[in-house]
Amino acid sequence: MSASEPDTAPGDEPVEKHEAEGVGTYLIGLGLASLLTVVSFFISGTTLVWGPSIPVALVVLAIAQMGVHLVFFLHMTTGPDNVNNVMALAFGVLIVLLVLTGSLWIMAHLNHNMIPMDQMMQMQR
């Protein structure tokens, strides 16, 4: 990284902006996040869509809203001044995915392979 592409602290605006532009960024973020939140709450209570698709839709909407928060509130960008911040975030996301999928996967298999509880009780007698 050359000196002409200095780093930006996470949470800072990537380039020098006028005050009003900074407020504008937060306003766009607030609008998009509100929209996604309202859709999430609507979808969870509706019978308009196929039932089993609701959890998938909720996960997709939640990930989209987290992206909105990261870009408009925490100012994560794809610019060269943000490489360090985004790399750290990517590593965090990797660990989160490993913890979540690993736990669910292993526990589902353990549940599947466990002797039903009533049989276990009989064996202990």
Binding site: S40, F41, G51, M66, H69
Partner: peptide, 14 residues
């Protein structure tokens, strides 16, 4: 965001 989606909304939709 993760909390209200995964815990509350999925809990209600389940």
């Amino acid at each position: 965001v993760a909390l209200f989606s995964v815990v509350y909304l999925m809990g209600v939709a389940r």
